[in-house]
């Protein structure tokens, strides 16, 4: 007997009586808290920074102001500072030297500061992880309240096989529980809300 049939047979024998799968409510918030301020509060809690822009035109100025010294800059968007052609890169290992990456976020989740980033929007799956610093552009109309609404909104089948909820820069507290920002992934995260 294959291990698969062995396991399935034992599970069948040992499983309990049918227990009904519950319906999960959406838990909409009843108060009129602004999604933007909630998102901002949580993004800052997880170590990120939120900057609200009046128009997309302000982006280039902001980038050169915040990151005057960064050398290799990649973007999937039309950004002036970008100097690395992502389309020319096939082997993801070649992304190792990137200082800054600027990408578009699909939508944000107010309750935890997370942003959904599907693989089809970032050209290389490893891009938001391997970069030293990360900038995400987010449309301010694209915020949901909580994770239930987030899953209602996202379509994993359109994500090209991978997607990530990203909340803040990478971090660790593995040494004596003291929080250090910048573990293996990006050292900082700035979100521009347009």
């Amino acid at each position: 007997m294959s291990s698969k049939s062995y396991i399935l047979e034992r599970v069948k024998q040992n499983k309990p009586m049918l227990s009904v799968l519950p319906v999960v409510p959406m838990f909409e918030r009843k108060d009129d808290v602004s999604l933007i301020s909630l998102f901002k509060e949580n993004l800052e809690f997880v170590g990120g920074r939120l900057i609200e822009l009046n128009s997309k035109e302000e982006l280039n100025g902001q980038i050169s102001e915040i990151y005057p010294d960064l050398k290799i800059i990649a973007s999937t968007l039309n950004v002036e500072a970008a100097n690395l052609d992502l389309n020319s890169i096939i082997d993801p290992h070649a992304l190792k030297g990137i200082d800054l990456t600027i990408i578009q976020g699909d939508f944000g989740v107010a309750e935890n500061g997370a942003i959904w980033i599907p693989a089809n929007t970032i050209s290389h799956r490893v891009l938001p992880f391997i970069t030293q610093h990360l900038v995400i552009i987010l449309d301010k109309t694209q915020l949901v309240c909580n994770m239930h609404q987030a899953y209602q909104k996202l379509d994993i089948h359109k994500a090209d096989g991978f997607g990530v909820f990203l909340s803040g820069p990478s971090k660790t507290a593995d040494i004596e529980q003291s929080l250090v920002i910048g573990a293996h992934g990006s050292r900082s995260l700035v979100v521009f809300l347009v």
């Binding site: 809690f45 994770m147 991978f162 909820f165 990203l166 909340s167 803040g168 990478s170």
Partner: peptide, 17 residues
């Protein structure tokens, strides 16, 4: 687990790269 609203990365794998 740690008092974070969510982990930094919640990665959804569906298909191989």
């Amino acid at each position: 687990a740690t008092g974070q609203p969510i982990t930094t990365y919640s990665s959804h794998f569906l298909k191989p790269n």
